[in-house]
Nucleic acid binder design. Structure first.
Length: 699
DNA sequence: CCATAATTCTTTTTT
DNA sequence: AGAATTATGG
């Protein structure tokens, strides 16, 4: 029997209501995951079969966590429940119905990089200048069309402008190419199941019968395709439970529409709505800080999360000299926490962009702090790893032209552009894949290598297959012969890749190449394939959603970084950044640090960013400034030679200056008493006391 | 065809 | 800053 002693009334109600549509509006830390997992356990307890439940999450990490927690409640029955991300659920549907959609069994999923290179290729084919319209722009447009369920034919109906007509052409050709390659992209994993259900109502009916109970987490992040997909499957029994929080909607760049959560009550007239507003996670201080920030959003349903928890420690604010000082300060405070007995798994450092992880990583390495970086795809992005994966994909799906092109001349086999262009033309004319078009020359030798490996691959495990590929392809030999430090490191990475397949095989028993390829495409994060316990976590704020830690460091709290300067011009985007800030703050249970840097070198240029506007929105009682206590004095000396600031100067019009609060600006006019400085949009021109100490000349 | 040099591009957040 | 693409010379 399920024990509900530790549940409040609302939570109990949410767990036990299983008759019809249910909307749970759950604030941060209100026990949402606890409710969802217990709900699943309660369903099973009441006699519902594990196969009748479908639970959908947004990230792989969230689904992994849900599986674990359900396992803790009901044991190994948890393995039989369909708990997955939208994309992997879509993949499952495709795997079960590929023939109906005219795919072959061994279709492959292409990742974002691959789809970009397909688009570039098409643009060359149809003579579109990449300087006039960027491939990325086209890709984003195609992707958002797909996520709004606009297919290439529908798109052409509305294509008017020059750009749209180009996109239309590329879109059509892109779909054709993927089809010939027997491959699908990420978006297809959502779009194709919907297409299937529309064309074959009987198939849809079978899914409706199968999944009688549907649970969807983070409903505010669903886009049109995801929304339609769940609506279709739940249409018969309407036992659909969605959980969400408008204040945590942070994926609109991916087409997410938090209106979906409001539409829920329209779609299901008899929907039950339960609000979970008591926070059990954070100290009162942290919650007050979060509330004081989010209340600045205009487009928002007012609600207030409350808690009974302790006041706890104040938030510590530290403004560092530069990004290295920032990282060192964090390292130092992390070390302090660790020596006070805080577990490394209970500490997280979060930031707005992945690029910020580098400096932090260097500092952690230097200070011997064990860490793991979530969501940095740098391992899979390495050339040698991509090459290896392309070999594997090609072995599995010979029609995968993208992978073939990647490796046909790796290592160098004397197959150049000319040969490849000829092959492409031949494939194009005959409407076949490049692999099938090969029948002579050096490229035939390549084809024979693949065929050779194919003969052996069925009898060996994955790890051995990788060795076989490295040997037969000549990749290993070429790298050994190169005899450089770089080649050695590439070899090391390839060995490291084997540890991933080994882990896989140990975890899953025997697994197929098919399963492996699907998983590394959908879970393209090394850390999620490894058991890396006892480490401090570094990740983006987006990746942190749904997680909680005793100690949280938010780094890079600067205007321009967070909120991102790309969001400055659009109120809606600023509001989304603010929701992200709300998410970031509410990750912390006990202690929150907010850190930023006066001077930061990012993407190769130096900038002097003012502190994030969100910091000033935090209730003053919640936060204390620790910048004066430069624990990192050593760095002050180290960085002195790099000091760019000059004081006591006679300013003149046109001088580039740095102002403590607003950052970089230009002196536009001055008199004996005042000076006027222009700052980038949206700050504008501000008036200051002349030669005020907060203004410095930029060298 | 290949290696290297020079130049240009990109740089939010994720499946 | 670093990656990616293009130009150049062998």
């Amino acid at each position: 029997m399920i024990n509900l002693d530790n549940f409040n009334d609302k939570q109990k109600e949410a767990v036990l209501y299983n008759d019809g549509p249910l909307l749970i509006l759950a604030g941060a830390g209100s026990g949402k995951t606890k409710v969802l997992t217990t709900k699943v356990a309660a369903l099973i307890d009441s006699g519902i079969d594990t196969s009748e439940i479908l639970a959908i999450t947004f990230t792989n990490k969230a689904s992994k966590e849900m599986k674990e927690r359900i396992y803790n409640l009901i044991g190994s029955d948890a393995y039989y429940i369909q708990i997955s991300t939208f994309h992997s659920f879509g993949l499952k549907i495709l795997k079960d119905n590929y023939e109906l959609l005219n795919y072959k069994k061994n279709f492959t999923i292409i990742d974002s990089d691959d789809s970009l290179s397909v688009i570039k290729k098409i643009m060359k084919e149809i003579n579109v200048d990449q300087k006039m319209i960027s491939p990325r722009y086209i890709k984003d447009n195609i992707s958002s069309a797909k996520n709004s369920l606009v297919d290439e034919f529908e798109y052409s109906k509305y294509a008017n402008t020059d750009n749209e007509i180009i996109i239309e052409k590329v879109y059509k050709r892109y779909q054709e190419k993927l089809k010939i390659n027997n491959s699908v992209d990420f978006d297809d994993l959502l779009v194709l199941p919907i297409k299937l259900f529309k064309e074959y109502p009987s198939v849809l009916k079978a899914y409706q019968e199968r999944y009688k109970y549907i649970l969807i987490d983070e409903y505010q992040d669903t886009n049109e395709a995801q929304y339609v997909l769940t609506k279709m499957i739940s249409a018969k029994y309407k036992n659909i439970c969605v959980v969400g929080d408008n204040d945590q909607s942070i994926y609109s760049f991916r087409g997410a529409n938090y209106q979906n959560i409001l539409n829920f009550e329209k779609d299901y007239k008899d929907a039950k709505v339960i609000m979970l507003e008591q926070n059990y996670r954070s100290t009162k201080t942290i919650l007050d800080a979060a509330n004081s920030v989010i209340k600045n959003n205009k487009y928002r349903k007012d609600k207030k999360l409350w808690c009974d928890n302790n006041v706890g420690e104040k938030i510590t604010y530290y403004r560092a000299l530069n990004e290295r000082d920032e990282a060192d300060y964090i390292s130092l405070e992390v070390e302090k926490a660790l020596s006070n007995g805080v577990l490394p798994t209970q500490i997280a450092v979060i930031y707005r962009t992945n690029a910020q992880s580098r400096t932090l990583e260097e500092s952690f390495l230097k200070n011997n702090i064990p860490y793991k970086i979530i969501g940095s795809f740098y391992f899979y992005n390495r050339k040698e790893i991509k090459d290896l994966i392309s070999y594997l994909k090609l072995l599995y799906n010979n029609n995968d032209d993208v992978s073939l092109m990647r490796v046909i001349n790796v290592p160098k086999r004397g197959i150049g552009i000319k040969t490849i262009t000829n092959l492409e033309n031949k494939a194009e004319i005959n409407n076949i894949s490049i692999y099938d078009a090969i029948d002579s020359g050096k490229e035939l030798i390549f084809k024979n290598i693949i065929e050779d490996i194919k003969k052996e691959m069925d009898n060996i495990n994955l790890t051995k297959l990788i060795d076989l590929v490295l040997d037969k392809s000549g990749m290993r030999e070429a790298l050994i012969n190169e005899n450089t430090i770089e080649a050695d490191s590439r070899l090391e990475n390839l060995e490291e890749f084997k540890s991933i397949t080994k882990n896989f095989e140990e975890r899953e028993g025997i697994i197929s190449l098919e399963d492996f390829l699907n998983e590394i495409t959908l879970v393209s994060d090394v850390e999620e394939h490894k058991d890396s316990k006892d480490r401090v976590t570094l990740m983006t704020m987006h990746a942190a959603k749904g997680l909680e830690f005793d100690y949280v460091f938010i780094s890079g709290m600067e205007d321009g970084i967070f909120p991102s300067n790309k969001s400055f011009y659009d109120e809606q985007e600023i509001e989304e950044e603010r929701r992200l800030c709300y998410v970031a703050i509410t990750r912390a249970k006990k202690k929150l640090y907010i850190v930023n840097a006066r001077k930061r070198r990012l993407y190769g240029i130096d900038s002097n960013n003012p502190p994030s506007r969100f910091i000033s929105e935090i209730d003053k009682n919640c936060i204390e400034n620790n910048s004066g206590n430069a624990v990192t004095k050593i760095n002050v000396y180290k960085d002195r030679e790099e000091e760019d600031f000059v004081t006591d100067i006679n300013f003149k019009v046109g001088d580039k200056v740095i102002q403590d609060k607003y950052g970089n600006g230009i002196v536009v006019s001055l008199n004996d008493e005042f000076m006027f400085i222009a700052f980038p949009f949206p700050i504008g021109i501000k008036k200051f006391v002349k030669n005020h100490k907060s203004i410095k000349l930029e060298k």
